[in-house]
Design a protein around this nucleic acid. Structure first.
Lengths: 155, 155
DNA sequence: CAATAATTGATACTGACTATCGCTAACCTC
DNA sequence: GAGGTTAGCGATAGTCAGTATCAATTATTG
């Protein structure tokens, strides 16, 4: 398993900070009984290296040495364990992104693809109320907000 | 234009009320330059007959005499002209539904698949505000709410 | 170190949808 | 109505994203 690194206080050296993230995720997966494998680490590492929401195919392309199926499996595992969250673009394209954990929504820039987490927006209660009024018991929801980020708004 | 005519193919007697819906939609399409064709009417009629959100494949299955491509094309046209709206289930399955026009959101029952429009819920402003706070200019959003309808909530 | 069970990767497959293209029929003009 | 455009049709082939299969590999455990 590769990574030989002292896991404890890990940043004393210029290890790419993403390495810490990878170790952290691998450790969490390990706690849940998932093995620490080379391909898996490669996938996680590639995920951590992405600057913005990415597609499964992009990930595959960036990992020519890892089988497609393995990339997809790894990605699915990360989503299931809440390490990565799904992002839906306006054209329904599915993308992924390292999760900042916890339930939250995304602001997506239609121009550059950047994403930001929507803070301080508590639609939850509002939706639950409206659902109740319609005779429904709400159990969940899906929300994505589209627009232009600061940089792209100027055009 | 069109269609006050009892087309011979038709069953003039107790015209199902959906027939009025079909005529109406065909008329609107006609206004936009789309032809009034038999297969198109069949598609619209099948759409109008659905009691709840349906998939494209379900529609194909219910129209064995209409080519798949035609069903898909018809459905796409109806979406583009706002006669039909798309509904996204929790598992990302795409369904369709006669549109009640105007921007609105759906409440979807995870058990029986029924849908209701979410009334009196104005998330718009809230989202725009939160987006602005994050330096974004909001241009749109996608929201689906999942739960159980009154009937299914009892279980 | 051997046993065992998870994981991998090559590949075949699936499901949903789109492109192609020769043919048909709706609509417009006269 | 008749005739000419051309939208629309349907059969089918193709595409694309993602999944299933399965023999070989490898992390983990006893």
């Amino acid at each position: 398993m590769v990574t030989t690194t002292p896991r404890h206080t890990g940043h004393e050296h210029p290890r790419p900070r993403s390495a810490a993230v990878v170790d952290d995720i691998v450790a969490q997966l390990s706690d849940q009984g998932y093995r620490d494998t080379e391909p898996r680490r490669l996938v996680i590492s590639a995920v951590a290296a992405q600057g913005r929401p990415f597609t499964a195919e992009e990930l595959c392309a960036s990992l020519p040495c890892v089988g497609r199926a393995t990339v997809y499996r790894g990605l699915r595992l990360l989503v299931e364990t809440d390490q990565v969250c799904r992002v839906l673009l306006e054209d329904r394209e599915l993308r992924y992104q390292l999760s900042h954990q916890g339930h939250h929504h995304h602001l997506l820039c239609a121009v550059c693809g950047a994403s930001a987490d929507l803070e301080g927006c508590d639609v939850e209660d509002m939706l639950r109320e409206a659902a109740t009024a319609a005779g429904f018991r709400m159990s969940g929801h899906w929300l994505e907000v589209y627009g232009r980020c600061g940089e792209c708004a100027e055009d």
